[in-house]
Amino acid sequence: MLALQLLFNALALGAAYALVALGFVLILNATGAVNFAQGDLVMAGGYGGLVLARMLPVPGVVLLPLLMAGMAALGLMVALVAYFPLRRRPPEAVFISTIAIGIILQNGTNILFGPELARTPALLGDGEFRWLDGVGGGLVVSAQSVAIIVVAALLIAGLHLLFSRTQFGRRLRATAQDREVASAIGIPVDAMVAATFAVGVALAGAAGLLLARGFFVTPNDGGNYMLKAYIAVTIGGWGSIPGAVAGAALIALFEVVFPALPALVPALGGPAFSQNGATIVLDALILVILVARPQGLFGEASKARA
C-alpha cells in the first residue's frame, strides 16, 4: 500500500512538474533560446493565484482559466521586453535578459507580498479519500492531488490537440522547426513566437497555482523550478515535448519513490537512498544520458543546447 501511496504522490508531483517543463520546452523550440525566467514565472503564477483568490473567493478551478489568461498576457510582455529586442543578437543576450526578468519577478514579489510562505486556494477542496486504512497505513488520496493530475492531463491533452489538430498549432510547430522557412511560406513568425511565449507562460502559471497549494510558494522558489525544468528537458530530449513530460515524471519518481525504497525493500539502505543520495543518483543519471544518449530519451528537435 505504501508503494501505491508513493506512486500516487509522484504522479501528482510529476504532473505539475510536467507543466513547468512543457512551458520551458515550448519557448525553447520557438526561439532556440533558454528562458531562464521559467521557474520565476511558475512562482509568479502562485502569487497570481493568490491575488485572484483575494479578489474572487471561488475554488481554484474557477480561478485557473483567469490566471492562465493573465499569465499569457505576462508571457507576451516577456516576449516584447526580453526576446524581440534581442532576437538577432547572440543567444546569450536572451539568456541574460530572461535571467533579468526572473530577478525582477523575484524581487518584485518579495516587495509586494513579503518573504513569508503563501498558499493558493485548493482547486476543488481540501477533502481526502482514505482506502484500506488497516493495510500498511492505507492509501490517502487528497482531492487536490487528484485535481492536479486531472488538470495537468487536460492541459497536456489540450496542448497536444492544439499542436496536432489546428492550423494555429501547425503554424506554431512550423515556426519551432525552422523560423526562416516558416517566414518564407508566409507564417507570421513573430506572432507565432509571441503566442508561444503566451502559451508557455500560461502553463507556468497553471503549474504555480497547482504547486502552491500543497507545497506553498515564496518569492525564492523560481530557481528550484527552473532547475527541474532544465533537468526534465535534458533527460527527455532537448526540445522534445513527450520527453519533457517523461523527464518531469522521472524527477518526481526520484524525489518521492527512490528515497523511500528502503521502507519498501528493507534489504536496501545506505546513503544512496537518502533524499540527498537520490539527487546525486539522478544527477549521475543525467551525466550518463548526456554521454551515452546525448539526444535524451525522446530524441532531439533542436541542435543547440545551452
Partner: peptide, 9 residues
C-alpha cells in the same frame, strides 16, 4: 517537496 519518503522510512 514531498515528505512521504522520510516519514515512511
Amino acid at each position: 517537496k514531498d515528505m512521504a519518503p522520510v516519514l515512511a522510512k
